[in-house]
Design a protein around this nucleic acid. Structure first.
Lengths: 169, 169
DNA sequence: CGGCTTGTTCATTTTTTCTTGAACAAATTG
DNA sequence: CAATTTGTTCAAGAAAAAATGAACAAGCCG
């Protein structure tokens, strides 16, 4: 083991500038509201404020996160379409730039997070309908009214998604 | 250690009916998407499908959750206006019923979760603007363009909130 | 008042989620 | 093709979030 055991932000990393820190903090916050891990916010934040596309190493170095986190974070961001893969001549590494069209980001979120939930909700609703039609207890009618309310909500939610996209133009 | 260590759903509790289980499951799901604890979904779910207002004990018994969880869960739901306190004659206990107007639920969520975040985002944006105007590095112009994009996003988000309420009528 | 019921709070424990780091695969280069 | 670089995966550890349960407050009833 070498004499100096403490290795704060890795040797060659440039510390984050105040503007960067602030932007990253903002995205960490936002991303938490959306139920995603901090690291995803950090990565997107740094890319957002970076004038040029960055390779994975840069994220690891500058954010002080593990290669694993960076890789997984980018995976998520790619799935959302929140990040563009940019070719950089003479460099074997993948470089990433933030997608900054709000509409695209929202669409990605809807596609990856909301849509699947609504779909599984639809399944559940079907099951509920079956259960409730054959419910002949005292509360049968009440149950059916509740289930129909759920169906209403579900339909309304589906309607709203496309409207959101429209509004974000 | 006593002979029988396993004590499933407390003695006097009526087991959940299939319809109840299904509805609760649905809300647990929904509530997780909104970043809230499972217990909140369970409580709301049970209240939603309950023909009559329920007291805290009923939640504890039927959902098999602790009194603490039930109390805290109700606290959250009250804050959101997702639950109505109902007076029941001759019963000292507070009884709760689910608020089922989608619009009110959405309004509560916006008020409690989204609005505060947007407000704190506004503060952060102010700080960012200060930082970026006095940024005279090579990237000064780029930074400023990014910050102005953030301001755009922020403004747009604020605009959308009221529209959401309108749509949920 | 004194005991009982109802509900809240909060330190602790449990569970869940995130991060790490090391092993691996794949591609590239000399 | 061996060595190196780049990136992914996943088991294990760390951190964060949620649930528990016991202590406590506040009201009520006899």
């Amino acid at each position: 083991m070498p004499a100096a055991t403490i290795a704060r932000s890795s040797p060659s990393a440039t510390a984050l500038a105040p503007v960067e820190v602030e932007v990253i903090g903002l995205f960490v916050n936002a991303v938490k509201l959306l139920g995603m891990p901090k690291s995803v916010g950090e990565i997107y934040g740094l890319l957002f404020i970076a004038p040029d596309p960055l390779p994975l190493d840069a994220l690891v170095d500058r954010l002080n996160i593990s290669k694993g986190s960076a890789s997984q974070g980018l995976k998520v961001l790619r799935a959302f379409g929140a990040v563009k893969q940019v070719y950089v001549a003479g460099d074997r590494r993948d470089h990433y730039a933030a997608e900054t069209e709000l509409k695209k980001l929202a669409a990605g979120f809807v596609r990856e997070e909301i849509k699947p939930r609504l779909d599984s909700g639809a399944d559940r609703l079907e099951r509920l309908k079956s259960l409730s039609v054959s419910e002949d207890s005292d509360h049968g009618d009440f149950y059916r009214s509740r289930v129909s309310k759920l169906a209403q909500w579900h339909a309304r939610s589906r309607e709203i998604m496309p409207l959101l996209s429209t509004m974000l133009d």
